[in-house]
Simulated scan of single mutants.
Amino acid sequence: AFLAKDTQLRTIKAKDPEQQKYASLTTLREQYIKQYRQTIVSLKGICQAWGLDISKGISGKARLIDLIESYAAFPEELRAGLVDMVTHAQTTQKVLNKITNTLEELAKNDKVCQLIQTIPGLGPIYSSRLRATIGDIRRFKTPKDFPAYYGLVPRSIATGYNEKKGKLPIEETKQ
């Protein structure tokens, strides 16, 4: 009831189906990344505890299974579980690649994503994320409202009573 009376609160517009598609795909992608990393870190930790050091480049390779199966220090019960972890990581990586390719293809064919990608440093994945959250850009009253929506604020330099917002002058950044 108190929130309904509050005139300062902005209304939140529901996502359209296109935004929801991008939001769901980026969320799925993030979840698979998290799962893959957790599996690989756990696998490396267990192997290292038994004296088998797995290099960074071998993690996703099929020969990792051969390496685990041929390592004599592993008990048989552990070996089967580690092979399952490698298989799980490889399956997760395949699904992750499929979702990433889908997002890249969607971004390639979407005018809004193409426009976002004109900003230096933003590729198809980040343009898809922004596409999912921005919606209609005209909902932001001023250009400053857009970065504020994401919690970004200009740099504040306060000396005494003077306060400057934005980038440091070029002379000050060189020192």
Rank of each mutant, 00 (worst) to 15 (best):
A1M: 14
F2E: 08
L3I: 00
L3K: 14
A4Y: 09
A4V: 14
K5M: 08
D6L: 14
D6P: 04
Q8E: 04
R10S: 05
I12F: 08
K13T: 15
K13N: 13
A14R: 08
A14P: 00
K15L: 15
P17Y: 01
E18D: 08
K21I: 09
K21E: 09
Y22M: 08
A23G: 01
S24P: 00
T26P: 00
L28I: 09
E30K: 11
K34W: 08
Y36G: 08
T39R: 05
I40H: 03
V41G: 03
V41P: 07
V41E: 08
S42A: 06
L43I: 04
K44D: 04
K44H: 10
C47K: 05
A49Y: 15
A49G: 14
A49V: 10
W50F: 15
G51L: 05
G51N: 11
G51P: 07
L52C: 07
D53C: 09
I54S: 04
S55N: 10
I58P: 01
G60T: 10
K61V: 04
D66W: 00
L67I: 14
L67G: 02
I68Q: 02
I68H: 04
A73S: 08
F74D: 00
E77G: 02
G81Q: 08
V83C: 01
D84C: 01
D84N: 10
M85L: 14
H88K: 12
H88C: 05
T92L: 06
V95M: 06
N97E: 13
T100R: 03
L103S: 04
E105K: 14
L106W: 06
V112T: 14
V112D: 06
Q114N: 13
Q114H: 10
Q114V: 00
L115Q: 09
Q117N: 05
Q117M: 15
I119E: 02
I119M: 11
I119F: 07
P120Q: 05
L122H: 03
G123Y: 02
P124I: 00
P124D: 03
S127E: 12
R129W: 01
L130K: 01
A132L: 05
A132N: 04
T133M: 14
G135A: 09
I137C: 04
F140E: 01
T142H: 12
P143R: 06
P143A: 15
K144F: 02
D145S: 07
D145L: 06
F146R: 00
F146Y: 08
A148Y: 02
Y149Q: 05
P154L: 11
S156T: 15
T159K: 07
G160Y: 12
G160D: 10
G160L: 05
Y161A: 11
Y161T: 11
Y161Q: 06
Y161F: 09
E163H: 09
K164C: 04
K165N: 01
G166C: 04
P169D: 12
P169C: 06
I170D: 12
E171Y: 10
K174T: 11
